[in-house]
Amino acid sequence: MEIYSTLIAILESGMRLSVPLVFACLAGLWSERSGVVDIGLEGKMLVAAFASAAAAGATNNALIGLGAGIIASIGFALIHGFAAISQRGNQIVSGVAINMLAAGLTALVGNAWYAQGGRTPPLEGNARFQPLTWPGAETIDQIPLIGPVYAHLISGHSTLAYCALVATLLSGFVLRRTRFGLRIRAVGENPAAVDTAGVSVTRLRYFAVIIAGVLCGFAGSYLALGQAAGFLTNMTAGKGFIALAALIFAKWRAWPALWTCFLFGLLDAVAIRLQGVMVPGIGQIPVQAIQALPYLMTVILLAGFIGKAIPPKASGLPYVKER
C-alpha cells in the first residue's frame, strides 16, 4: 500500500511538473506548424513568469497576473515574428536573441524593482492559482485504490493545469479539423501553395506566432503563480528546451505532445524522488542520468534510431513572394 501511495505521489508531481512543458510544447507546435522555428520558448516563458509575478503581486489578483504574463509573452513573440516573418531574418538567431534578452531583462528589472537579487516578493492567497479541490475529494480519498486516483490525480491541481488539457484539446482539434488549422499546417509545408490560393502567408504566420505567445504566457504564469510563489531568476531552467525536445518527440502533433510532456515531467519527478535513495539490487541511481534522459531520447529519436521525426517542410524558411 505504501508503494501505491508513493506511485500516486510521483504521478501527481509528474503531472504538476509537466504542465508548463505542455503549454510551451503546444506553443512550439503552433509556431513550427506554421513554418516559424521557435527556440525562444524559454525566453517567452521567462518574461511571462516575471510579468505575471510582478502584476499579481501588485494587484493581488492571479488572473491579472496571467493577463500580464500573456501580454509580455506576446510582445516577445511579436519581436520574433517581426524578425522571422517580416524581416525574413534567421529564425534560430532571433530565438537565441529572445532567450538572452529575456534572461537579462527579467533579472535586471527584477533586481532594480524589488532589490531581492532578481526575485519578486513571495506571493500568497489570491495572487496565486490555488489547487482546485473537486467535490468529495477528501471522502473519496478513503476508498482504496480508486480513491487516491480521484483525490490526487484528477482533483487537486491548479486551474491552469486543467487549462493545459483544454489547450491540448483545442490545439489538436483546430489544427486537425478546421479550415484555419489546415491553412496553418499548409503554410508550414508549402507556403507558395497557400499564397496561390489567395491566403496571406504573413497573416497566418503572425497568427500562429501570437498563439505561441499566448501559450508561453500560460506556461510562464503557471511557473510563477502555480508551481512557485513568485518569480526567481532564470526559473525556467531549460524547460523551454525540454518542451522543444518533447515537440520533436511528439512529431509535431498535439496529443502526443501532451503524453511526451507528461513522460518528461514524470522523469523529472522520479529524479527528484530518487535523490539519494538506494534501489535494491541496483544501488544508487545517479539523478543526472534520469535528468539527461529527455535530451538523450530526443537526440536518439532525431537520429532516426527509433522511428523518424520529420519537421514541417517549410519550417525555418522565410517566405519570399514571387514578383
Binding site: 524581416q87 532571433s94 536573441a97 532567450n99 538572452m100 534578452l101 534572461a103 537579462g104 532578481g118
Partner: peptide, 23 residues
Amino acid sequence: RVTRDMIVAISGLVILFAGALDG
C-alpha cells in the same frame, strides 16, 4: 541597481540587431 544581467540583455540586443533584424 544596474547588475551584470544588463550585459546579457545587451548581448541579446546585439544578436537581434546584428543578426535577425540585420535587414
